[in-house]
Every structure is written in C-alpha cells, then in structure tokens.
C-alpha cells in the first residue's frame, strides 16, 4: 500500500492551505473596536448585543428541543450551558473578534460577531 505522497497529494495540500489563508480575508472585517454579537435561531435574529462596554453580564436564553443560555460580557460572548447532546457549543468557549462564530448545530443557534464598519464609528479623531 502506497503511503509516499504523490504529486496530487501535494496539490491537494496546497489547495487546502490556500483556502485556509483566503477565507479569513473574506470573513474578518477590519476591527474598529466595536463588536456586535448577533444571535440567531433557525435563521431568525433573537438578540443583538453591542459587546463593548457592557457593564453587566447579559444572559440570553433560547428554547426549542435543545434549550440553552448564552452569556455576554464586556467584549466577549459564549454559550454558557446547553441541553444539546454534543456540547460542542459550550466547549467553543468565548469568542470576541469580528468574523468569529459560535454555533449549536442541534439547536440551530448561531452567534455571529460583526465589527462595526468605519462609517458609523462613535468618535472620529483627526
């Protein structure tokens, strides 16, 4: 059985590495310091939280077959607890950068972080 990599193997590996470096360019927007978390269940938005300067932690609960709780703090957000079988969402932990996502696939809940575009910054310094 042949295990020595052949030319096609290298091409495949090269393609994979290329996509790995290209995808972040599409998804990660410029971080202007203002991060908004958008929580959606089944594609419908259930919460939109501006993460910067959150004085108190915010809990977002969602219902359904696999209910759970999302915890938002200053600058970061995570799945705190969930009743889903795989617990992948909870193990994902905190996310804090624009373009990052955390998902609970069984519950169909997605947390998406967006960086605010330069057009609507609060303070502009010259």
């Amino acid at each position: 059985m042949r295990l020595r990599p052949k030319s096609g193997d290298w091409v495949l590996a090269g393609l994979i590495l290329l996509v790995i470096f290209l995808v972040p360019l599409v998804f990660v927007r410029q971080n202007t310091g203002i991060v908004t978390a958008i929580v959606a269940q089944d594609g419908a938005e259930i919460a939109r939280i501006r993460l910067n300067g959150l004085a108190d932690a915010i809990h977002v609960t969602y219902a359904g077959q696999y209910p759970g709780t999302i915890l938002a703090e200053n600058g970061r957000i995570r799945f705190q607890q969930a009743k889903c079988p795989d617990q992948i969402c909870v193990h994902t932990g905190w996310i804090s950068n624009p373009g990052q996502t955390a998902a609970c696939l069984p519950a169909r809940v997605l947390i998406r972080l967006e960086g605010t575009a330069t057009g609507d910054v609060d303070v502009r310094l010259r």
């Binding site: 470096f21 594609g43 996502t101 997605l110 998406r112």
Partner: peptide, 29 residues
C-alpha cells in the same frame, strides 16, 4: 450547518475544519 442555520457565516469555520481535515486525514491514512 449553513442550510439549517440559514446563514453563510458558519463558513468562517472553514479554515479550522480544512486544517483539521489535513491533519486528521493524514493520521487516518
């Protein structure tokens, strides 16, 4: 995941999964 979540944002996870596929696929082989 994109279909059930009705969002393309999950594809931001693609680089991680591709990297994992490269390593795990090699280990399995």
């Amino acid at each position: 995941a994109a279909l059930t979540m009705k969002s393309l944002a999950v594809f931001s996870y693609l680089p991680v999964l591709l990297g994992a596929a490269l390593v795990m696929g090699t280990l399995t082989a």
